[in-house]
């Protein structure tokens, strides 16, 4: 954890939240005084119990809701093209084929299919769904649907990918596989990820930074760095290093929840 400052000073800021409050219906405080810096190339996990405002933080970053107080600052010009999003459900359009689903973010920018067919094929190839272009979502398993969703989020190579507990509904075997693949995809697409989860194991495996949050009111309690080098694979998952970080994160989470109770 001591090396954190050295690492961060080398990195370029992508966006930051400054003392952001979010109050719903005038009296429900979803988020209180949240400050957070996301740096280019980060895999940043927001880890915390239900109701700690993790998802609200993502909705604030994606501009679906606006802060009651405080502000969110992007470095450089910010537009709708900066974001890719993956939800807990795959959230595909059932009437469209896999390729058409991945085409969506391009299509909404007025690009015809032919113009971006190569990008779409490449993205599907990278998520391991080559040959499924013309399948319909209902023909795919839960894990495959999630892969399509990830391909859709990454295909335009946005600066930031937001993921809201994307693997929570999957079985553990599929989840491990997708965890491994997600790290490869992040490298391939050179993106930054903000990842919401309530799994300690998942957050340690994936992240270089874990922001631990507590509920009532939702707030940031502490932050951990996971300084284990990438690429990480199954060996990392069974290493003592991994066990150590997991321990740290679990302790920090317990402390945060103890505070809340």
């Amino acid at each position: 954890m001591g090396e954190r400052d050295e690492v961060s000073s080398q990195q370029i800021e992508l966006l930051r939240m400054e003392q952001v409050d979010k109050v719903f219906n005038g009296n429900i405080t979803a988020l209180k005084g949240m400050s957070l810096q996301v740096r280019q190339g980060d895999f940043l996990s927001l880890l915390g119990p239900s109701g700690c405002g993790k998802s609200t933080a993502l909705r604030l970053i994606s501009d679906l809701v606006h802060p009651t107080a405080g502000r969110i600052v992007w470095s450089g010009e910010h537009s709708a093209d900066d974001l890719g999003v993956v939800f807990q459900e795959a959230t595909l359009m059932p009437w469209a084929t896999v390729a058409q689903n991945v085409w969506l973010p391009f299509r909404l920018r007025g690009k015809v299919y032919g113009e971006v067919a190569k990008e779409i094929d490449d993205a599907l190839n990278l998520v391991g769904l080559d040959g499924f272009q013309d399948s319909y979502p209902r023909e795919l398993s839960g894990g495959m649907k999630m892969r399509v969703s990830i391909a859709r989020a990454m295909v335009t190579r946005p600066r930031l990918i937001l993921m809201d507990e994307p693997f929570a509904a999957l079985d553990e075997i599929t989840r491990f596989k997708l965890n491994n693949d997600l790290l490869k995809l992040k490298d391939a697409f050179e993106c930054t990820v903000v990842f919401v989860t309530h799994s300690v194991f998942e957050s340690v495996f994936l992240s270089n930074r874990i922001v631990i949050m507590a509920a009532r009111p939702g707030r940031v309690v502490t932050e951990l760095s996971v300084d284990a080098p990438y690429p990480r694979n199954e060996d990392f998952r069974t290493s003592t290093e991994y066990a150590g970080y997991t321990r740290q994160a679990a302790d920090a989470l317990r402390l945060a929840m103890g505070e809340a109770a």
């Binding site: 994606s62 537009s79 709708a80 999003v85 939800f87 959230t91 969506l104 973010p105």
Partner: peptide, 14 residues
């Protein structure tokens, strides 16, 4: 229409 898809369309500035 699926509300998550609606959100996605909003995020993409549709």
């Amino acid at each position: 229409a699926d509300h998550n898809l609606r959100d996605l369309f909003r995020i993409y500035g549709a």
